[in-house]
Every structure is written in C-alpha cells, then in structure tokens.
C-alpha cells in the first residue's frame, strides 16, 4: 500500500476492529441499496405510462365534411372524406384535428360481394360475429367507410384509380374496393368504421386499431 494518505490501512487492527469493519461494510452496502430502492422504484413506476394515461377515451360520432360527402354520392371510385377528429395529445388541451377516412359507395350487389369476400368482418359462423365490432354499422345507406390507416404497420394508403386498388406505399400492401387484402404483408383487410345517418348527415366513429394483428383490437378513439 504505497498510496498517499493511507496510513490507517497499514495496520489490519484487532479482530474486533476487523469484525466491526466487516459489519460497517455490509451495512453500507445494504443501506445504499435501500436508498437506491426508495428513489429507483417510484422513478421506474413514474416512467411507465399509468392507468390515467393509457385510459381509452370515449367513443364519439363525428360529422363528416358535407362537400366531400356530396362528391362521394356520385363517385364510383372510393374517395377521401374529411372530418374533425377529437385528439387528446398528451398534456395539450383536447382539440379538433383535420383528418380523413375512405368512403366507398356500394349498391346491394356490391355489398353482398363484400360480405361474401370479407369473412373477417362477416364470419359465416354467426356465433363469431361478436368478435367484429359494429358489424351492423358497417354498411349504412349504401356506403362503407374505411379507416385511412394501413392495418399492416400504420402508414396511410391511397386509392390507385388506374389499378382499382388501395395501395400502401410503405410495404406495398394492396386491397380491393371492399377492403379485402389482395397482396403484400398486411395481416388483415382494411378496417371499416361505424357509419350512421343523423338528421340527413353522415357521421362516423373514428377508431384506431392495433396494427399487425389478424384480429381487430381497439387502441384508441382519438
């Protein structure tokens, strides 16, 4: 021990002193751990989003843009329909953000085809229909609404009129006019949103589903 200011460490001391030191060393480690836990445990819990942050906001009907809807009534191709989405963005006061969904005009024959095709939404086994939220609200007054978010990994897809498909630019998932997946990595077809008529105006409920899962799991209504 050639260190400076280390005279006290030259003499190992009496057995009593040695045992006293061993006790203090252990006690220091134990108390240090206690200090770490008293600070560390609340900090860990603090950093995990709690119940109040993960809480599902209430579902709500939003009226869609009247001009967009008028255009849709005469359009053979799916169209973007804008609406004001209520957003709760962390600590900011809730506000309305401009957003859109995809509207598809369908006659009964086209919808029957969709029903037959989209067994994920309309399972032949009626007992399973409970798994599909709002199955009865998918087709209203001749229209179907799809969420604008790709079920694969959450990008935004768009209608390609030349090929008559919905195409997602992120990973090339494609869907036909009824939302059925026709190619690419998506695990399920497009997600329909509840649609209703209220005093002659169309209203939708915005739902954000979990991405990448075959089943539809509701993540948020905002």
């Amino acid at each position: 021990m050639s260190q400076a200011h280390a005279e006290a460490y030259l003499d190992p001391g009496t057995p009593e002193e040695q045992s006293r030191r061993a006790f203090m060393a252990n006690a220091t480690i134990v108390l240090g751990t206690v200090i770490g836990l008293v600070i560390g445990v609340p900090l860990l819990a603090y950093s995990v989003p709690g119940k109040k942050i993960n809480e599902l906001s209430a579902e709500a009907w939003s009226p869609v843009d009247a001009n967009d809807w008028t255009k849709l009534t005469t359009s053979a191709a799916p169209l973007k329909v804008s609406f004001t989405r209520k957003t709760t963005d962390g600590y900011f006061a809730p506000e309305g953000a401009s957003d859109y969904v995809w509207g598809v005009k369908m006659n009964q024959t086209q919808f029957d085809k969709m029903k037959a095709e989209r067994t994920d939404l309309f399972p032949p086994d009626a007992s399973k229909s409970e798994q599909v939220p709002y199955a009865s609200q998918i087709y209203t007054a001749g229209y179907v609404i799809f969420s604008s978010i790709c079920p694969h990994l959450g990008c935004r897809f768009a209608w390609d009129d030349s090929k008559s498909i919905f195409f997602c630019p992120c990973h090339n998932s494609t869907y036909d006019r009824t939302g059925e997946r026709t190619g690419g990595p998506a695990p399920r077809g497009l997600d329909p949103l509840p649609l209703r008529e209220q005093s002659g105006k169309a209203e939708i409920t915005w739902i954000r589903y979990k991405s990448s899962t075959p089943d539809r799991v509701i993540v948020s209504y905002s």
Binding site: P42, L43, A45, Y46, V48, G50, K51, K52, I53, G90, Y91, F92, A93
Partner: peptide, 25 residues
C-alpha cells in the same frame, strides 16, 4: 416536461395529475 410557453405549465400539471408518482417525483 416540455419547455415552451404552450406546454411547460400544461406538462407540469400533467405530471401532477396523470403520471404515476408524478407529484412525488
């Protein structure tokens, strides 16, 4: 916490009201 006049107070209040152990920390 987010330092801007639009979010500083709001995010601080959020810590008090919504974050687990937020008021304690």
């Amino acid at each position: 916490y987010a330092p801007s006049s639009a979010s500083a107070w709001e995010s601080t209040l959020f810590i008090y009201q919504k974050v687990p152990f937020g008021q304690f920390i």
